[in-house]
């Protein structure tokens, strides 16, 4: 006859406790749910920032409308001004043929360009730093009154900055969620240890080292945190998938969710939860056991 029940694993040496178990489960589920959104927000704003800055070619255009006799002189003045403007990499006036090609889709090919008062176009390529458009406008109005600076994509810059900021907020949120979870689990672990003072005394009397006792608590809490985080992250993903699609519009909603390689971030959330729970419980348990000596 065998003796059943003595293949006792060391985590069973502490009794299960309902209250701290539920607290840990709930906390990690809630935190994982929130983490899904924080990560999704970060991802979406990263994508948005990248898309916008790619689209924003670092070019601007100067339109020059002047009486026929002054066009050449003012073009030279504009180019001279651009040459000495910081932040301008290069600049050139488009040729008649190029301008004709640009207009062809609207006007047809046999447009008598020299007889029409079509503005001359000057293409400006910026350096990475970009130029100060207000200064350039002032200079142009002095040196070439017919020139108008059109930096068409500049309006997007604050949006890119905002997207970057949003991404940062998302990352900070993930860190805060992790910290809050660590704090809650530390509290739960401390209360579990305090509630089991008598169990700990008996374990010590039979020769259990602190690390053996701590491990029993750590395994319990890590397992609960993992289960909670799986449920929470799952619910978070489902909630994201239920978001009505608004693709096409270049908005934050467009990238909100997981796609392709970003899916690998989803299992990172329960993995992070179990790591946080492991470290928090281990630290709390060893410190508490040291104090209970």
């Amino acid at each position: 006859m065998s003796a059943p029940g003595i293949d006792l694993s060391t985590n069973d040496i502490v009794p299960p406790s309902g209250f701290t178990a539920r607290l840990t489960l709930f906390t990690s589920a809630a935190m994982a749910f929130l983490a899904v959104f924080a990560v999704a927000l970060s991802l979406a704003s990263t994508q948005l920032a990248t898309r916008w800055s790619d689209a924003m070619a670092r070019t601007a255009t100067i339109r020059l409308s002047a009486p026929a006799g002054q066009v050449e002189a003012q073009t030279r003045a504009v180019l001279a001004a651009l040459e000495t403007t910081p932040g301008v990499a290069s600049a050139r006036a488009l040729s008649d043929t190029e301008q004709q090609e640009l207009l062809a889709p609207w006007m047809g090919t046999n447009l008598p360009i020299d007889t029409l008062a079509i503005p001359r176009l000057i293409e400006v390529v910026e350096t990475a730093q970009g130029f100060d458009s207000e200064n350039l406008r002032l200079r142009l109005s002095a040196e070439a009154p017919g020139a108008v600076l059109d930096d068409h994509t500049r309006w997007r810059r604050p949006f890119i900055a905002a997207a970057e900021h949003l991404k940062f907020i998302g990352l900070v949120s993930v860190a805060l969620i992790g910290g809050a979870m660590a704090a809650m689990i530390t509290l739960a672990a401390n209360s579990a240890l305090a509630a089991n003072a008598q169990v700990i005394r008996v374990l010590r009397l039979v020769g259990a080292r602190d690390i053996v006792i701590a491990r029993a608590f750590v395994r319990r809490f890590s397992a609960r945190a993992l289960v909670g985080a799986l449920v929470g992250a799952g619910a978070g993903v489902v909630a994201l998938l239920l978001l009505p699609s608004v693709s096409g519009a270049e908005t934050i909603f467009d990238g909100l969710g997981f796609s392709g390689s970003s899916w690998f971030l989803v299992p990172m959330i329960p993995a992070g939860a179990i790591l946080v729970a492991y470290l928090a419980t281990r630290f709390a348990a060893l410190r508490m056991l040291g104090r209970m000596a």
């Binding site: 003595i6 006792l8 060391t10 069973d12 040496i13 020769g207």
Partner: peptide, 13 residues
Amino acid sequence: LSVVENIALPLTV
């Protein structure tokens, strides 16, 4: 823990 688990406890820990 059961009696047998208690008796085995010093070995377990």
